[in-house]
Amino acid sequence: MTDTKDYGPASYVMDIEKDTLDNPNFRTTRWTGKNIQLTLMTIPVGGDVGLEVHESHDQFLRLEQGKGRVQMGPSKDQLDFEREVGADWAVLVPAGTWHNITNIGDDEMKLYAIYGPPDHLHGTLHATQTDAENDPHED
């Protein structure tokens, strides 16, 4: 059984690469503090993180496995920044920027995201993207 506990806001250390690679869920909040939040994500082949914008949240994402296409821009209809990324790449998303990462590889894409401030409720677990889309607490 994979650990799905949110350990924040207590002091905590982890093997972030192992936890990210072991995470089977679309989204698992691993640590929620007052000012930042860490989530682990698994995106199936052909799937994506989901086109979104965080008006007051900066975001850091790091791929541990897989290959993705990053798209960002000032509106959901103007994603004029596009890059391919792979394992060990980081993506920095400024607040107010529309963004998405699509899995364009042959394997699951495994990544983690750090939000500042937190974006999801403490202990959020979405086994699938559909679960995330149907969560009344999500944007």
Rank of each mutant, 00 (worst) to 15 (best):
T2V: 15
D3A: 08
T4A: 07
T4H: 12
T4C: 10
P9S: 04
S11D: 09
Y12M: 12
M14A: 13
M14F: 14
M14D: 06
D15E: 13
I16L: 15
I16A: 14
K18W: 07
K18M: 06
D19K: 13
T20D: 10
L21Q: 00
L21Y: 08
N25E: 09
F26L: 06
F26N: 00
F26K: 02
T29M: 04
T29S: 13
R30T: 08
W31Y: 07
T32L: 05
K34Y: 00
I36C: 03
I36M: 11
I36D: 00
Q37Y: 03
Q37I: 05
T42H: 03
T42D: 06
I43S: 07
V45E: 06
D48F: 06
D48Y: 09
V49S: 12
V49M: 13
G50A: 10
L51P: 02
E52V: 03
S56G: 08
D58I: 11
F60R: 10
R62L: 14
L63A: 15
L63I: 14
E64Y: 14
E64G: 01
E64P: 02
Q65V: 03
G66A: 10
G66F: 10
R69G: 04
R69A: 12
Q71W: 02
Q71L: 12
Q71D: 07
M72I: 08
P74D: 15
P74H: 09
K76M: 12
D77T: 15
D77S: 13
D77P: 04
Q78P: 02
L79N: 01
L79Q: 01
E84T: 13
V85A: 04
W89L: 03
W89D: 15
V91P: 05
V93T: 08
P94I: 11
P94N: 15
G96F: 06
W98P: 09
I101G: 02
I101N: 01
I104V: 14
G105R: 04
M109N: 06
K110N: 05
L111S: 10
I114H: 02
Y115P: 00
G116E: 02
P117G: 02
P117H: 02
P118R: 04
P118I: 07
D119G: 13
H120T: 02
H120P: 00
L121T: 00
H122S: 11
G123R: 04
G123S: 02
G123T: 09
G123Y: 01
G123C: 07
H126M: 02
A127W: 00
A127D: 12
A127Y: 06
T128V: 10
T128Y: 06
Q129M: 14
Q129Y: 14
D131I: 07
A132I: 04
A132W: 05
H137C: 01
H137P: 00
H137E: 09
E138A: 03
E138G: 01
E138I: 10
D139I: 09
